[in-house]
Design a protein around this nucleic acid. Structure first.
Length: 283
DNA sequence: CAAAGCTCCTGACCGC
DNA sequence: TGCGGTCAGGAGCTTT
């Protein structure tokens, strides 16, 4: 599922496609994804130029030259596929869930595919976009200057819930999802059930460092898959990445000299993967 | 406030 | 081979 690094990779992949390349025509295969498309969706996009393709948390922001911005979220299963002018779709590709098609001025096509339809695309006036309900309460970007260990520690002290659940709260840090939260906690050697208020300032500092590292590295990996241009079926949205704990229940811990076995528990309805030996509460 | 529950949706997986 | 049942999971919204 796309998290911040994947979305950033999509952004980097799509930016050159839309650059100086007006949207000629948009086609919707259905009236909605997670939400109904904005009123006038097609009309607003037809003929528009994307003057800037940005990102905030896991949201892609297509800023148009007509005062509107297309805000897009990939949900769990959304992906984009960019096809050069005249380029056919990859063989064997499932087009059943291509819900949005962008035809560009130069003949390129950008397909948005989303089997589960947890994703969405909505239009907002560019002015005041930051006050939309999707963006207004977002916390700092994990790989930005605003994310400080001191600030996180302060907020953690007021929380009694488990650190794992808190890190998924977009108000605390924007853009972290289940996978990278598990990975960051593993690297920081913090048990996912640790109560936020029980974290020491040192632990908060170490945690912030690992959050930044794991996200930054994942973005680098995503960038390299872009260069390879060999992503399975060419879809932008996913790339191969080896995770140390995520989805590795029952497998050996990869930490040096550790004999632990990765465990899986459920917190707030979501899987948490961790090493009971490395991520010991008593640490 | 924080925290937990609900909701959307489909493909994958499992047992029969 | 096919059919039901179960489940994951981002995040806004609602409720406690």
């Amino acid at each position: 599922m796309p998290e911040l690094p994947e979305v950033e990779t999509v952004r980097k992949g799509l930016a050159p496609v839309f650059a100086d390349n007006r949207i000629a025509h948009v086609h919707l295969a259905r009236p909605n994804l997670r939400f109904e498309f904005s009123e006038g969706f097609v009309e607003t996009l037809n003929g528009a130029l994307v003057v800037h393709l940005g990102r905030r948390a896991k949201y892609l922001l297509f800023e148009l030259d007509n005062g509107q911005t297309l805000l897009s979220h990939l949900g769990m299963s959304g992906s984009f596929l960019a096809l050069a002018p005249g380029e056919p779709e990859p063989e064997g590709r499932k087009s059943k869930h291509d819900h949005v098609v962008f035809e560009l001025q130069d003949g390129s096509r950008v397909l948005y595919n989303d089997p589960r339809r947890f994703g969405f695309m909505l239009l907002f006036a560019t002015e005041g976009l930051e006050n939309s309900k999707f963006l207004k309460d977002l916390g700092p970007e994990p790989v930005g200057n605003e994310l400080s260990a001191a600030g996180l520690f302060q907020k953690m002290q007021r929380r009694t819930g488990p650190v794992k659940t808190a890190l998924l709260d977009q108000k605390l840090i924007a853009g972290l999802g289940n996978i990278y939260v598990c990975e960051a906690l593993f690297r920081a050697k913090i048990h996912p059930q640790t109560r936020c208020c029980d974290l020491s300032e040192l632990q908060a500092t170490v945690l912030v460092r690992h959050i930044r590292d794991v996200i930054r590295q994942a973005i680098e990996v995503g960038g390299s898959t872009l260069n390879d241009f060999s992503a399975a079926d060419g879809a932008l949205g996913y790339f191969q990445h080896r995770f140390e704990v995520y989805d590795r229940a029952g497998d050996p811990c990869l930490a040096a000299k550790c004999t632990g076995m990765i465990a899986r528990i459920v917190q707030a309805g979501r899987s948490s993967f961790y090493c009971p030996v490395c991520q010991n509460t008593e640490n």
